Amino acid sequence: MAEEKRRYFATPIDVKHGIIDLTHGAGGRATAQLISQVFARAFSNEILEEGHDGAFLPEIHGTPVVSCDAHVIRPLFFPGGDIGSLAVAGTVNDVAMCGAKPLYIAACFVIEEGFPIADLDRIVQSMGRTAREAGVKIVTGDTKVVEKGHGDGLYITTTGIGEVLPGIRVSGRLARPGDRVIISGSMGDHGMAIMSEREGLSFGSGIQSDSAPLNALVEEICRAAPHVHVLRDPTRGGLATTLNEIASQSCVGIMLDEASIPVHEDVAQACEFLGLDPLYVANEGKLIAIVPEEEAAACLKAMRAAPHGEESAIVGTVTAEDPGYVQMTTLMGGVRMVDWLNADQLPRIC
């Protein structure tokens, strides 16, 4: 069998100089070589190595959670990450925001003819590293190759599977007056990192994407604040749009304190230069936790002690007044509305 396998893969893929062609998506030897020498090498685990078209998963004991996502970011590589690490972190976070422990990921790749195999390998290796950091397994997937000019390099779609943490129930409908609004760090890093790379702009020290898996942080939140009401990651539309969604779903008001919202200086300067509001700029490694007042201090302490939560801050309060609206006390002492995002400030950022 070993000798037969060696003959089957007699000519290895040229990862360093090769490019993707249509035979890599045709289901024959080239496809098998791509799977074996690029994908399987990065994602190796006992479930994937069974070699089925799907995955036989161990029994899940908690309430199952499923999330799916499509990743179409441009550029594919950016300061602080790439489409591969983003795909895994984003999927992990979507499951975690359900108050769940992410366990498995399925990933599908749509690759454009002519795409450098070295870039694909780099992206796939990045996915593997991020999956290991998050403690999840990539267990199944699919690869398609489209003609040159029809794929913009690479698209990745993912499905995440997990189980709800014991005793946890979160929902956008559960915010209650008196709850505190906590965010896990500075706003706008990811969106501005993408914009600066895309447009060739330089803002001082260089802005890095915050893309990261947040499931370990969520587990710390749930231990410190077992009655946490809402968990969300403020991705497209940023903090402002996500809080408007929650206010609408829960029929409550939310009052923010502008002075308490962390924004890195280089991000603030970049937003000012481009005429953007950091409250509407996307994040990929930050979360919002809305918790009862009596659990807020313990939750904040736990978040600040956890990876990816060092800059956590209480930034607002849920109110019974003006249900469905988000407002903010400004640095000048006034109050202004924080409305929904009305247009796409930064397209193709995730």
Rank of each mutant, 00 (worst) to 15 (best):
E4W: 05
F9P: 08
P12D: 04
D14G: 03
I19C: 08
D21G: 09
D21H: 12
A30C: 06
I47D: 00
L48I: 12
E49C: 12
E50P: 05
D53C: 07
A55F: 02
T63Y: 12
V66R: 11
A70V: 15
H71W: 11
L76P: 00
F78D: 00
S85G: 15
V88E: 02
V88Q: 03
A89W: 06
D94V: 04
A96I: 08
G99K: 01
A100M: 03
I105A: 07
A106E: 11
C108E: 15
I111V: 14
E113G: 11
A118H: 10
D121I: 02
I123M: 10
I123Q: 02
V124K: 01
R129I: 09
A131V: 06
E133H: 11
V136K: 05
V139D: 01
E147L: 15
E147K: 15
K148G: 08
K148Q: 14
H150D: 13
I161L: 14
I168H: 03
R169I: 13
G172M: 04
L174M: 14
V181A: 01
S184H: 07
G185M: 02
S186T: 11
M195S: 09
S196D: 07
L201C: 08
S202D: 10
F203N: 03
G204N: 05
I207R: 01
I207E: 01
D210N: 11
S211P: 01
P213Q: 04
E219R: 14
C222W: 00
P226Q: 07
V230N: 00
P234F: 13
A240L: 10
T241S: 15
L243Q: 03
E245P: 01
C251I: 08
V252L: 10
D257G: 13
E265W: 10
A268L: 14
A270P: 10
Y280K: 00
A282D: 10
E284K: 13
I288W: 02
V291A: 05
P292D: 07
E294F: 08
E294G: 11
E295C: 08
A296C: 09
C299H: 03
A306P: 00
P307Y: 10
H308F: 14
S312F: 06
V315T: 07
V318S: 04
A320K: 11
A320L: 11
E321A: 12
Y325T: 12
T330V: 12
M332Q: 15
V335I: 14
M337F: 07
M337P: 01
V338L: 03
D344K: 12
I349S: 07
